[in-house]
C-alpha cells in the first residue's frame, strides 16, 4: 500500500492503494467516481475509458503507480454541467439503451474530436471500434458524434 497524489477532474486527491491497482478501481472504489465502468478488465470493451492528459485510455489496464503527474479526466469531469457537445448530442439522439457503455463511448468520442474536428465515417469507426455496446446503439453513437462535430 502506498499513497499517491493524483489529479482527478481538476482536483488534487490523495489515495492509498496498492501500486498495481488499476485507475478504474481507484476511481470507483476509493474516490466514489462510479461513472467509469468495469466491463472486461483487459482493455477490450472500452467501458472504462477515461482521459489521461486529454487522451482516451482504458483505465482498467493502467495502474495507479503509472499515473504520476498526468491529469485524469473521468466522465464526471468532462463538463461541469453535463453539457459537453457530445453529452448534448447524446441527449438529442437519445442514444442509450441500458446505458452501461455510454460513459466510455462519450469519453472515447471526446478524445477523437479533440484531435480530429471533422472525422469521416471510417475514422469514427476506427476510433470507436474498441468500445463495445452490447445493446447495439452504434448507429446512434455515430450519429451523435457527427452532431457534436457538426457534420451533416
Amino acid at each position: 500500500m502506498a499513497t499517491y497524489n493524483i489529479k482527478v477532474n481538476g482536483s488534487s486527491r490523495d489515495v492509498n492503494a496498492d501500486p498495481d491497482t488499476p485507475i478504474l478501481w481507484v476511481l470507483r472504489d476509493k474516490l466514489d467516481l462510479v461513472g467509469t465502468k468495469y466491463g472486461c478488465g483487459i482493455a477490450q470493451c472500452g467501458a472504462c475509458t477515461i482521459h489521461l492528459d486529454g487522451k482516451a485510455v482504458r483505465s482498467c489496464s493502467i495502474p495507479i503507480s503509472a499515473v504520476g503527474s498526468m491529469e485524469i479526466t473521468s466522465i464526471e469531469g468532462l463538463s461541469e454541467k453535463g453539457d459537453h457537445p457530445l453529452q448534448n448530442a447524446w441527449k438529442e439522439h437519445d442514444v442509450p439503451q441500458c446505458g452501461y457503455c455510454q460513459a466510455g463511448q462519450i469519453m472515447q468520442a471526446a478524445s477523437l474530436l479533440k484531435t480530429n474536428k471533422k472525422p469521416t465515417d471510417a475514422e469514427i469507426d476506427e476510433a470507436m471500434d474498441g468500445n463495445l455496446c452490447r445493446c447495439g446503439t452504434y448507429n446512434r453513437v455515430k450519429a451523435a458524434i457527427k452532431t457534436a462535430a457538426k457534420i451533416n
Binding site: 467516481l33 462510479v34 465502468k37 464526471e76 453535463g82 437519445d94 442509450p96 455510454q102
Partner: peptide, 22 residues
C-alpha cells in the same frame, strides 16, 4: 418521442447500476 428518463444521469456518469452500489 420521449427521452429516456435516466438520460441525464447516464451521460454524466451518475450512480445508477448495481455495480455502483455503496
Amino acid at each position: 418521442e420521449t427521452s429516456n428518463v435516466d438520460l441525464e444521469n447516464i451521460v454524466t456518469g451518475k450512480p445508477l447500476f448495481g455495480i455502483d452500489t455503496k
